[in-house]
Design a protein around this nucleic acid. Structure first.
Length: 264
DNA sequence: GCTTGGACCTGATTGC
DNA sequence: TGCAATCAGGTCCAAG
């Protein structure tokens, strides 16, 4: 998409999670996409108009790329076309379709020169694989938090980009109980947790992500990290380290999976 | 202030 | 078989 103009844009409904920006189609059509990027779970596209197109997949959003030449991409998994909400057609004939059954995703436009004031990213914590993230950072960020460590790690203002799966997996690797209050983690536990978070994220990226029911990459290929889950969605199964039974509990309305013996 | 719980949606699965 | 209840990868916002 980079360096190409939007030849046409189809917007098939008025809203996703939020309403589309006013005159969304007109503000994209004919503009050149200068650069694609990502911050936390937000995708960004800098436009020749001076605006940034911000996109979020929510839980079930998916972009599928189809090249003009048939057969250039293979679609391993199909999606219901009833949920194709936006189609970008680029000038070389490639189409990029946004499909999202639950419509928890969204698209917004924001002026590039004021992008540091984009509200949804202003309070973001550091990226796990960046130099700003470390055990020392966790020591500081968690020291006054009265919420369970599981909830704290899901808080994007503490650390950006971790979701429910990877928080569960990182806590298991670090042998930290999800029920432990965040303020009791600084010190030795944070020293284990920071590298565990890095490992989980790096391995999941290498495996192409986690495909439970919806996730697929832009050419339709599924991820493989779900085959390496140690605790997530393994309630009642044996812990790979100690053999004890993996348990499930609900924290902040989200399922947590953990080993009661390994994680303290 | 910080923290929690409900809301936003559809679809798949489970249990009666 | 058919229906209702439950659950799902995320984020926002009102209420406590």
């Amino acid at each position: 998409m980079e360096g190409q103009r939007f030849a046409s844009v189809s917007q098939n409904r008025a809203d996703l999670r939020f309403p589309f920006p006013e005159h969304f189609v007109e503000r994209l059509t004919g503009k050149t996409l200068i650069r694609l990027g990502r911050q936390a779970k937000f995708l960004t596209a800098e436009l020749s108009s001076g605006e940034v197109l911000v996109m979020h997949l929510g839980m079930t959003g998916r972009f599928t790329v189809e090249a003009a030449k048939l057969g250039e991409f293979h679609h391993a998994t199909g999606t219901d076309p009833a949920h194709d909400h936006v189609v970008f057609r680029m000038e070389d004939g490639t189409s990029v379709t946004y499909n999202d059954p639950r419509r928890f995703g969204f698209m917004e436009l924001w002026p590039a020169e004021q992008f540091e004031a984009y509200p949804r990213l202003m309070a973001m914590g550091p990226e796990p694989l960046s130099n700003h993230f470390s055990a020392a950072y966790l020591d500081t960020a968690l020291k006054d938090k009265k919420t369970p460590i599981k909830s704290a790690l899901l808080d994007q203002s503490v650390i950006a980009g971790l979701g429910n799966i990877y928080v569960c997996e990182a806590l298991w690797r670090a042998k930290v109980s999800p029920k432990r209050l965040a303020r009791s983690v600084p010190g030795q536990r944070a020293a284990r947790l920071a590298p565990a978070i890095n490992e989980v994220i790096a391995e999941a990226i290498e495996a192409g992500g986690s495909s439970i029911s919806d996730f697929a990459n832009a050419s339709g290929e599924l991820g493989y990290f779900q085959h390496r889950f140690a605790v997530y969605d393994r309630e009642g199964e044996a812990c790979r380290t100690c053999g004890d039974t993996i348990r499930r509990l609900v924290q902040s309305g989200r399922s947590t999976f953990y080993c009661p013996s390994c994680q303290r």
